[in-house]
């Protein structure tokens, strides 16, 4: 009887000890798991900070360089571009003039960074294009725009994957390891067109009487999953002003493009405000008998009119075509001042 009781008590105590050991063991495992996961998190955070700072320094140094090209190692980090700026995973966005697709492919280990000076009709700022090397740009040929197509291809960095095809069907057949951007001129993709989620389209259209190299419409199309099939959907039309903006549109989603376009137009407005003040000061400081006085006076009015036209566009989102005409007048006025050896507008 005593033996049995002693034996039972021993079993209970031994079981308790094992439960306690299991509990302690589980806790030890949790400790090691936490250590490993925290270390992983920290190393990810460190990589994020490093890539962020690398992107930032590359992009800022490109903000003033002339057609600078470079490659950034991204270590497969999740890079997003939004209206607030470019960010690595959850890091604070860096607000720079970057044109790219919204979500960059996480499989990409490199990004091509390319700066194009936006000149319309004077240098305003550099547009930064962030291109994934895997992205395939498929241009549907249009004999009317051969020169423009050639110019587009020449102005993208050498490593950009460009291909020309004859028809939209050929373009759809093209395989790509990353995104596929189909570029078309004055054609509209059929809304019935079946495609895949990595394919998007931009349609470039001229505006009557304007030079398509510098001013036109760009319509963005994306794909949407409907009844298990990806179909083409229109995202809307935007404008481009200056050839460099057209390059930016080819390498952007509509949301990113529109946001940066607006920011750049504001920058343009600030620049015109500076030039308006500058031309006024030059006019005031020129001797009344100077041959340049009347020419600078005329230029002063053109600068003010151009600025007012841009202000109308920024406020009401209309009249960009008028603004384009005024910007052309500004260019002519500046050339005249150069010919007369007078102080230029810009």
């Amino acid at each position: 009887m005593i033996k049995k009781k002693f034996f039972k008590k021993g079993i209970v105590e031994s079981q308790m000890a094992w439960i306690f050991i299991l509990f302690a063991g589980a806790l030890i495992l949790i400790v090691f798991y936490r250590i490993a996961s925290n270390q992983k998190e920290i190393s990810e955070l460190r990589i994020q900070a490093e890539i962020s700072s690398k992107i930032r320094s590359a992009i800022t140094s490109f903000s003033t360089g002339y057609e600078a090209k470079s490659e950034i190692e991204t270590a497969n980090a999740l890079i997003k571009n939004s209206c607030e700026g470019i960010s690595v995973k959850n890091s604070r966005p860096i607000n720079l003039n970057v044109f790219s697709f919204k979500q960059l492919n996480p499989k990409t280990s490199k990004l091509l960074v390319y700066s194009v000076p936006w000149n319309f009709p004077f240098d305003i700022d550099n547009l930064i294009l962030l291109i994934e090397p895997e992205t395939k740009f498929v241009i549907v040929k249009n004999s009317k725009y051969d020169n423009l197509i050639q110019k587009i291809k020449e102005n993208f960095p050498e490593k950009t994957n460009f291909i020309e095809v004859q028809t939209i069907e050929d373009a759809l057949k093209e395989e790509s390891t990353g995104k596929k951007r189909i570029v078309m001129f004055e054609q509209t993709p059929s809304f019935q067109t079946k495609t895949d989620k990595e394919t998007s389209f931009v349609i470039i259209q001229s505006i009557s009487g304007k030079d398509i190299n510098n001013f036109g419409e760009v319509t963005f199309y994306n794909t949407e999953l409907k009844n298990n099939v990806y179909s083409v959907v229109s995202e809307g039309t935007s404008y481009y002003l200056g050839f460099q903006m057209l390059l930016a549109a080819i390498n952007s989603d509509k949301e990113i493009y529109d946001c940066n376009f607006k920011k750049n137009m504001k920058k343009f407005y600030y620049f015109l405000s500076i030039l308006e003040e500058r031309t006024n000061n030059i006019y005031k400081n020129l001797q009344s008998n100077s041959d340049c006085k009347s020419s600078v006076g005329a230029a002063k009015n053109i600068v003010s009119d151009t600025k007012n036209k841009l202000n109308d566009f920024l406020k009401n989102n209309v009249g960009l075509s008028d603004f384009y005409d005024y910007a052309e007048k500004l260019k002519i006025a500046n050339n005249e001042l150069i010919l007369k050896s007078c102080p230029e507008i810009y």
Partner: peptide, 17 residues
């Protein structure tokens, strides 16, 4: 320790900006 490390990295990244 990891909390300090994380805060340090975040502060550095913020400072860089």
């Amino acid at each position: 320790y990891t909390q300090f490390q994380r805060e340090g990295i975040e502060a550095q990244a913020r400072r860089n900006i």
